[in-house]
Design a protein around this nucleic acid. Structure first.
Lengths: 117, 117
DNA sequence: CGATAATGATACGGACCCGTAACGATCGGG
DNA sequence: CCCGATCGTTACGGGTCCGTATCATTATCG
C-alpha cells in the first residue's frame, strides 16, 4: 500500500509545512535534531549515542549536543544503563511525544489541503 | 483531490527524508532557507526581500543573509529592479531548479516506500 | 528642490553548531 | 589485577545564524 504523491504535490507539502514551522518559531530544531527526535520516537528502544550517530552518519559529539539542547526543551531524557554503565539510554518524554504528534498532525493537515496539481 | 496520509505515515516519511538530507550533507539548508527556496521556485515571480520576509514572518536581514548563502551555492540570483531601483528581484537558476527537483524526487521516492502503517 | 518614506544591505554582540582531538569512566580479556 | 577497548562527554578553534539598530540608495510628494 504505497503512498502515491506527485513531485509538485511533494514540493507544495514540503514548502507549506516548513512555512508553518518557521512561522511558529518551532524551527528551533535543525534537520539533524528532527531526524534524531523522530528516530527516537519511531524506532524501537533502546537508543544510544553511538547508535544514533551511526544511523545518522554523524559524529558522536553531534548527538551529545543535540541531546543537550533537546533535553533543555524537555523533548528527551538521558539515563545511565545500569548493566553497562558506559552506555547512556535515551528515553522519551511526554513533551517529546506531544511535539512529534503535533508535527504529524501538521503534515497530515497540510497534505489534505494539497489539491491535485 | 486531497492527499490522504495518516499520522504514522507522515512521521515515517518526515523522518526518512530528513535522514537522507542529513546523510547526503545537503542539510546545508536550514528550515528557513528551505522555505525561502521553495517559495521562490513555487510561487509566481517577482520575489523581493520584503515580500519573502512577510511571507515567512521573519525580518529582512534573515532574507538577505539567506540569499547571500544560497547565492554562494548558486541556487538563486539577485538583480536590481530597473523600474524601482530600491527593489531587488530574486531570480531562479538552473542549479536551484535542479536542487528543488531532486528534493521532490526524494520525497516522492520515500513516500512510495512507505507501507500502510 | 527638500522632506519623508521605503527598500535592501550592513555592523554588532550574542548564541548555537560543527569536526577534531582529548578526556574520564567503565568493561572485559589475559 | 591491568591494560586495551569502548562509551559518552568536553575543550577548542572556526564558522554560521540570529535580532536590533543603523546605513546608503532610491522613490514620492508637497
Amino acid at each position: 500500500m504505497p503512498l502515491e504523491i506527485r513531485p509538485s504535490q511533494a514540493l507544495r507539502l514540503w514548502r507549506q509545512v516548513h512555512l508553518d514551522l518557521v512561522r511558529d518559531g518551532q524551527s528551533d530544531l535543525s534537520a539533524r535534531q528532527t531526524a534524531i527526535l523522530l528516530t527516537i520516537y519511531l524506532e524501537l528502544p533502546p537508543h544510544t549515542v553511538r547508535g544514533l550517530a551511526a544511523q545518522l552518519g554523524v559524529t558522536k559529539p553531534v548527538i551529545t549536543r543535540a541531546l543537550d539542547s533537546m533535553g533543555k526543551l524537555g523533548l528527551v531524557t538521558r539515563k545511565r544503563d545500569e548493566f553497562d554503565r558506559r552506555n547512556v539510554v535515551i528515553q522519551r518524554t511526554v513533551a517529546g511525544a506531544l511535539a512529534v504528534e503535533r508535527l504529524a498532525d501538521l503534515v497530515v493537515e497540510r497534505a489534505r489541503e494539497i489539491g491535485g496539481g
